[in-house]
Design a binder for these strands. Structure first.
Length: 553
RNA sequence: GGUCCAAUGGAGAAGCGGCUUAACUCAGUGCCCUCUCAAGGCACCAUUCACGGGUUCGAAUCCCGUUUGGAUCACCA
């Protein structure tokens, strides 16, 4: 008769440590009352997902607000889906949002006393715990092949039973240790399954920081805890790691609620205190069929954080937007605080909505315009350079030509109480301000279009008059009066009311004159304040552009 | 199908039994300002809280049912 202990020894002869040893090695953290230890645990399977940013933001915030610890753990147990280098990239991107861990996996290094923080390097820790489970008959090796598993599933589907490896379907659960030993010695591949003592007819109470208390059916599945490649599954790794890393609050996506019974059961059988849980609502989007669905990296550009980075949205804008989803009272708070110092805001789980919010691009744009609009010209310069250097070489070279000129362009109607807010993202800066640069202007001016209601002669007259008689050597008010005089001289009304009162008497109003100038100078129907545009372009360049347009008409 | 979660306007939401003829923000619309646009200012935008029943003097708020939506049921996390 092979005993449980002998079987455990046969499977893990190299494991000498015990759970007690681990408890000593990773002692309770010495933190002040109320300090929360949170973690962000991404898989290195691709770029940072917007939902992951959301989760990490909350984790970071909760730790910071409570004077606790925020750490990152790399969950790289799925070797098939792993993408080389994505772990480092995740950390880099997090950093761009000012989310920097106190401890744990840092990209190219690890820091802290509770490591290693990369799951693939923790194999021995999991094995210590599994050996204990094996010794106590709480886990067993399972030799089921993929075909056998498929067959079980098929049968369950036919009989409309809950799918899974449980009860009578868990056939290798009933093997004797002698049979197990024989198969192992024969070199048969196997996984280790947890031997569940649960009954799905029983209800277990669970508690969640955002959902409150509720009941859920007890787990009766003999889940895999160690895969045939010797690495643990998520469920098991979560329990071991969050126990030994002394996490106080597990913050993760709502999709994990369904597996909570597994985790609760695992903690209970190991005699460990489970952490507090907070299951965050998932960020959604309206799908092709008109229904809500989870933001998906495959279908939605806004699911990848890199999209916002590449387009040049300021990182603060995304964070602010995400905070409004996290806590609805944040919005009022940030308005009061003039869109600054959001670190001061106190986050609370109780003020979190339970329903997944639809990702709102419009609201993001709003925050983005606010933030970009409130920067001074130096901040804008630095920001643009940093962004363009990495993502937009064309813009970068444009800015590099003359940084002062760029700052003056960006400074039009900025640095005042109500600054211009027409920059939504740095990514389309070139399109908006391109006309300030002569070579870009030349390109654009090849297909310049004026308002059809004016003849070419009218347009030529306006431009020639402005060229010869509009002085830039005066303040804005006088400049505008000057323009009115020119308008009047050419048969245009000096204001719109006059035109309205007597439409037959005028060719148009001063607005139309301004429009003609604007189009000639910028190739567009709208632009920032013309006075400042002309000041920046300087008289000589304005005249050059006027002449060029006149000659083409 | 089983299990769990959720349900207030176009979007995010406040609301916790009477103070609600449902706050606030974004979007939209209109007007004002104005050389255009952006900004700014002022209005408008749910007679009603998915539906049905109940409890109560009184319900968006409590209870029950229905419906709808979401999550999940892997050797993926």
């Amino acid at each position: 008769m092979v005993t449980n202990k002998e079987l455990a020894e046969l499977i893990f002869p190299e494991i000498k440590e015990t759970i007690e040893d681990l408890e000593k090695k990773y002692p309770e953290r010495n933190l002040k009352e109320g300090a929360e230890v949170t973690r962000f645990a991404p898989s290195p399977t691709g770029f940072l997902h917007t939902g992951s940013l959301f989760t990490s933001l909350i984790c970071h915030k909760v730790a910071r607000d409570s004077g606790g610890v925020f750490y990152v753990r790399l969950e790289d147990t799925d070797t098939k889906r792993e993408i080389q280098g994505s772990g480092e990239q995740l950390l880099e991107q997090l950093k761009l949002f000012n989310i920097v861990p106190d401890e744990g996996y840092l990209g190219n290094s690890q820091k802290g006393n509770y490591g290693p923080y990369i799951q693939s390097q923790r194999a021995d820790i999991y094995k210590v715990v599994i050996k204990y489970l094996l010794e106590n008959g709480l886990a067993y090796p399972d030799f089921a092949s993929q075909e056998e598993l498929d067959e079980i599933r098929k049968k369950q589907e036919e009989q409309k039973l809950t799918p899974g490896y449980y009860g009578e379907f868990a056939k290798y659960r009933f093997l004797t240790n002698d049979e197990r030993k024989e198969r192992i010695l024969n070199g048969e591949p196997y996984v280790i399954r947890f031997k569940s003592s649960g009954n799905h007819l029983n209800k277990v109470p669970v508690s969640d920081l955002v959902h409150g208390d509720f009941e859920i059916a007890e787990n009766d599945l003999d889940i895999v805890i160690l895969k045939s490649d010797g690495l643990p599954t998520y469920h098991f790794a979560h329990v071991c790691d969050d126990h030994f890393m002394r996490t106080t609050t597990v913050i993760r996506g709502e999709e994990w609620i369904a597996s909570l019974p597994i985790h609760v059961q695992l903690f209970a059988t190991l005699g460990w205190k489970a952490p507090k849980y907070a299951h965050l609502p998932v960020i959604m989007k309206i799908g092709e069929n008109g229904n809500k669905r989870k933001l998906s990296k495959r279908h939605d550009k806004e699911a990848a954080v890199s999209f916002f980075l590449e387009d040049g949205y300021p990182s603060e804008a995304l964070i602010m937007y995400l905070m409004t989803i996290a806590n609805s009272n944040f919005e009022e708070w940030i308005f009061e605080h003039k869109f600054t110092g959001m670190e001061e805001f106190k986050f609370s789980f109780s003020k979190m909505s339970l329903e997944g919010a639809l990702f709102d691009m419009g609201k993001l744009s709003f925050f983005s315009k606010e933030i970009l609009g409130r920067m001074n010209k130096h901040e804008i310069l630095e920001r643009t350079k940093k962004y363009a250097k990495e993502f937009n070489p064309e813009l970068y070279s444009l800015v590099e030509r003359d940084e002062n000129y760029f700052m003056e362009i960006m400074n039009i109607e900025r640095e005042k109480e109500n600054p211009r807010k027409d920059y939504e993202k740095l990514g389309n800066l070139k399109e908006i301000i391109g006309f300030f640069y002569n070579d870009i202007y030349e390109e654009l001016s090849s297909n310049i279009v004026f308002n059809e209601k004016f003849s070419n002669q009218d347009i030529k007259d306006v431009l020639a008059q402005v060229r010869d008689n509009l002085s830039l050597e005066q303040d804005e008010q006088n400049w505008f009066n000057n323009m009115k005089e020119i308008a009047s001289f050419l048969g245009f009304a000096t204001d719109r009311k006059a035109l309205k009162a007597n439409p037959e008497a005028f060719k148009g109003s001063v607005s139309d004159v301004a429009e003609i100038i604007r189009i000639a100078l910028t190739t567009r129907k709208n632009s920032p304040n013309l006075y400042y545009v002309m000041q920046l372009l300087k008289k000589s360049e304005c005249d050059r552009r006027f002449n060029s347009v006149i000659s083409k008409l």
